[in-house]
């Protein structure tokens, strides 16, 4: 075959270019450790997602400065949202979909993966400085695709915790009974935390310092005298660091059975009857069916 000299030179230059490209990419993988999203994870059932990672999408600490984030994508949101991680941390994201193909992409970074139902994308990311990143779904997933967004907050070390707060108190008590407000505080970090549990009810504020070991759960119970609050609705708030949980307790003259609720409403302005000591304070159920454990969730635990 007759190939012109210039064409030969061009051919050689082209081959050098191609081999050079492959070499740089290989260096990026081997030398810099930029690994690809691959097949490391087993498949899952997208309509169930009942394993312990995705039944409760969250951030978990697995080592010093090492975290895992279990994220689900569904039409048209991400869970959890926002995702909060500390600065100078190494976070491994596990992302899967409950329905169609989505993506999980941190705007302005190279953190980017497809999210395919049945498959789990695994991606390890190093975060340095505190910064807020937007998360977009960049694969068309349905008519509201453009509204699918989330946030990743990289926060300063001292502002970061993995504390779960859940506070409970009865809905209704009779005047004179004690109101027990129980704050359940879980420390999902590996290290112990020292913090303060604070209850605000009416004009009263009570607090208690607690130390919770890593992975442990602490229960603090505050007892408040309903007589001091007086009859009526009283909002209470439990605060641990930035986490709050609040609901309302109603102090009534006399607890009545089931169908008398309407009367109780009408009579809420009657005088207090301090001597009555009927034990009605424990009608709050204690079951923990609340699966939607978004942090600083404000729903009253025992309302249902």
């Amino acid at each position: 075959m007759n190939i012109h000299t210039y064409e030969k030179l061009w051919l050689i230059a082209a081959m050098v270019l191609i081999v050079g490209f492959i070499a740089t990419i290989t260096y990026g993988s081997v030398g810099l450790g930029i690994t690809m999203v691959g097949d490391q994870q087993d498949t899952v059932e997208p309509t169930e997602l009942d394993d312990e990672r995705f039944s409760d999408p969250r951030v978990a600490q697995v080592g010093e400065n090492e975290y895992e984030a279990y994220v689900t994508a569904q039409m048209f949101s991400f869970q959890p949202d926002p995702i909060e991680v500390p600065e100078d941390s190494e976070v491994t994201f596990y992302v899967t979909s409950r329905d169609v193909i989505h993506s999980f992409s941190l705007v302005g970074t190279n953190v980017n993966t497809m999210v395919i139902p049945g498959e789990v994308a695994e991606m390890t990311v190093e975060f340095d400085e505190p910064q807020d990143y937007g998360v977009v779904c960049n694969e068309y997933c349905g008519p509201n695709h453009h509204n699918m967004e989330g946030m990743v907050h990289v926060v300063p070390e001292d502002e970061f915790d993995l504390t779960e707060l859940d506070a409970e108190a009865p809905d209704e008590v009779e005047t004179g009974d004690d109101i027990d407000v129980t704050a359940t505080v879980e420390n999902r970090l590996l290290d112990p935390i020292e913090t303060t549990v604070t209850l605000e009810i009416g004009n009263e504020t009570v607090s208690e310092d607690v130390t919770i070991d890593g992975g442990e759960t602490d229960e603090t119970t505050f007892t408040v005298d309903s007589a001091q609050l007086g009859e009526g609705d009283h909002e209470w708030t439990v605060t641990v660091d930035e986490h709050t949980d609040s609901w309302t307790v109603t102090v009534v003259d006399e607890l009545e059975d089931g169908d008398a609720d309407d009367d109780a409403d009408d009579e809420s302005n009657e005088n207090t009857d301090a001597g009555d000591d009927t034990d009605g304070g424990e009608n709050g159920t204690e079951d923990e069916t609340d699966t939607d454990e978004t942090e600083s969730d404000a729903s009253g635990g025992d309302d249902e």
């Binding site: 064409e7 061009w10 999203v37 789990v120």
Partner: peptide, 30 residues
């Protein structure tokens, strides 16, 4: 490249083939 469920090695093979596909286009340019 960013699909979970496909091993990195398969992606690397596809990339190598893709890079060599530059060759006919570069030859065409000439």
């Amino acid at each position: 490249y960013l699909d979970p469920g496909i091993a990195e090695g398969f992606k690397f093979i596809a990339m190598t083939n893709t890079m060599f596909l530059l060759l006919p286009s570069l030859l065409t340019a000439f």
